[in-house]
Amino acid sequence: MPITVTATARRAAAAALLATATLVLTTGCHDAGRPAEGSARAVSPVPTLSASHDDGAPPRGPDGRVVCTPEMLRFHAGAMPRRPHRMLLTVTNFSDRPCTFAAQPYPLLRFGDDRRAPLPAIEASAPPAAVALAPNRTAYALITTSAAHRGHHRGRKVSQFGVALTARATPTQVGLDGRAPVHVDPHTARVTYWQPSLATARKW
């Protein structure tokens, strides 16, 4: 005898299927925000502090103050009138923050041959404290271009030279004011420490 499915039975079966589908969809929505057990997770690396100032902070010297860098400064150089064997180097802080030469208290000068060591400093010219430059202030260094008793028999005339503020820095090329060449003997030339005023620089 054939089995007859009544309308009531069909409605009950349809309701059961609908309830099952709803349960499956609801479970899927709750689990979508959670990774499956044992799955890999992307983890952002923990930031580390860098000694190379990658965070944009300016470099600081041993005294904790901002170190003067070439980007903050303007250089000028030229022979000193009525002062034989003397040349004056000036540096002005045109930035909006003070800086200091505590990390390297005298300029490292090179004339021509980069393989030669920078000019030695006149140790007696060291000021009581490392020179600091406020914005728009100027510091000075006097260069003795040759020993007075040696005359102009050694060395050569130069119209520019390299100035570095630290031992590892690439020298900044500074041209002489007026481009008038100056005779320099790198064997006997010397440079003072940075001086806070023109008067103290002229003493040398």
Rank of each mutant, 00 (worst) to 15 (best):
T8Y: 05
R10D: 10
R11N: 08
A12F: 10
A14I: 15
A19V: 07
A19S: 04
T20F: 09
V24F: 10
D31P: 03
R34A: 13
A36E: 06
E37Q: 04
E37T: 05
G38C: 05
S44W: 11
P45E: 09
P45I: 09
S50W: 13
S50A: 13
A51N: 13
A51L: 12
D54S: 11
P62C: 03
V66F: 02
E71A: 11
M72E: 09
M72G: 02
F75W: 15
P81R: 06
R83E: 15
H85K: 08
M87V: 03
M87P: 01
L89M: 05
T90D: 04
S95T: 03
S95I: 02
D96R: 01
P98D: 14
Q104L: 03
P107T: 11
L108P: 01
L109M: 08
F111C: 09
D113T: 10
R116M: 12
A117G: 10
L119K: 01
L119V: 04
I122W: 08
A124H: 06
S125N: 10
A130G: 14
L133C: 09
L133V: 06
P135E: 14
N136G: 08
R137Y: 06
A139D: 11
A141Q: 10
S146D: 04
G151R: 04
H153L: 14
H153G: 12
G155R: 07
R156Q: 14
A164K: 10
L165N: 06
R168W: 02
A169G: 13
Q173N: 12
V174N: 04
D177T: 12
R179S: 14
A180P: 01
H183W: 15
V184L: 08
V184P: 03
D185A: 06
P186I: 11
A189L: 04
R190V: 03
R190W: 01
V191W: 07
Y193W: 12
S197R: 12
S197P: 01
L198P: 00
T200D: 10
K203S: 09
K203L: 12
W204K: 02
W204T: 09
